[in-house]
Computed example of a mutant assay.
Amino acid sequence: MSPQERLDAILREERFRFFPPFGAANPGSSGRACLCFSECPPGHLDHLVSIRGFAPWGLVGTRETVNRLGGGTVAYVPPEVHETFQRAGLGHWAVRTAERSTWLHEREWRIPSSPTWGGRIDGVMAILIADATWRPTQVPTGRWVDGETGLEVAGPGATNAIEVHDYPRLWRESRVWVWDREKRNFDEYAPGELH
């Protein structure tokens, strides 16, 4: 999926999907699927987008939300310390640092998959997009109207009933940050402003 398609799917489904992170299948790692995030204060976001080439499409959350969901930060450690993580079965919670391979720009946080939390989204601070004209795919609302009059009707069995579609709930209820490549920063819009 493109970054836009992935964000569109996340907004429609209101759910994250877990995948094994890089290195999860290596010896000394649990193989457990995770959600992976980059920590991006505004100045660091410019570095990730402008210098490192990350696509500015995604959800903005907080450390507190990641911690509350059982996640934490990935450790960036030298090879000899990484071996300690591997011996503990936590190799995928540490990234080896070495010359020309530090990966520190990611400032990664992860949430391991959990049977008690299926990836349902809460705690969205904002939605980050790279195109102010982009809108997510509209979804069914469960409301029905008469296709001729526009008046609300009881349901699909009513005469001329058509289901109302609207933007996903997260799009309507969240702030939207639009990345401006020239300013190397984002413009902020209030919930519902980009409708």
Rank of each mutant, 00 (worst) to 15 (best):
M1T: 10
M1W: 06
S2N: 04
Q4A: 14
D8N: 14
D8R: 02
A9S: 07
A9W: 02
A9V: 03
L11A: 02
R12P: 02
R15S: 01
R15Y: 01
F18W: 05
F19N: 11
G23E: 04
G23D: 05
G23T: 11
A24R: 09
A25H: 14
P27Y: 04
S30G: 14
C34Y: 04
F37T: 03
S38A: 15
S38H: 15
E39F: 11
C40Q: 09
C40S: 10
P41N: 15
P42Q: 10
G43Y: 11
G43R: 14
H44E: 12
H44M: 04
L45M: 14
D46L: 08
H47K: 13
S50Y: 11
S50C: 15
G53S: 06
L59I: 07
L59M: 02
E64N: 08
V66E: 03
V66S: 03
N67C: 06
N67R: 10
N67T: 11
R68K: 11
R68I: 00
L69V: 13
V74W: 01
V77W: 05
P78Q: 06
H82L: 12
T84L: 15
T84Y: 10
F85T: 01
F85M: 02
F85I: 01
Q86M: 02
G91M: 03
H92W: 01
A94N: 12
V95Y: 12
R96Q: 13
T97K: 13
L104M: 11
L104W: 12
E106C: 04
R107G: 01
S113V: 01
T116V: 13
G119H: 05
R120H: 07
R120N: 07
G123C: 03
V124W: 00
M125T: 15
D131G: 05
T133I: 10
T133E: 15
R135W: 07
Q138D: 10
V139P: 00
P140R: 15
T141S: 12
G142D: 08
R143P: 02
W144D: 04
W144G: 05
V145W: 01
V145D: 00
G150N: 10
G150K: 12
G155I: 08
P156C: 06
G157L: 11
A158L: 00
T159L: 13
I162V: 15
H165Q: 13
Y167A: 05
R169E: 09
R172C: 03
E173W: 03
S174A: 15
R175L: 04
W177K: 04
V178R: 01
K183W: 05
F186L: 14
D187I: 12
D187C: 09
A190S: 01
A190D: 06
P191I: 00
P191M: 00
L194N: 01
H195M: 15
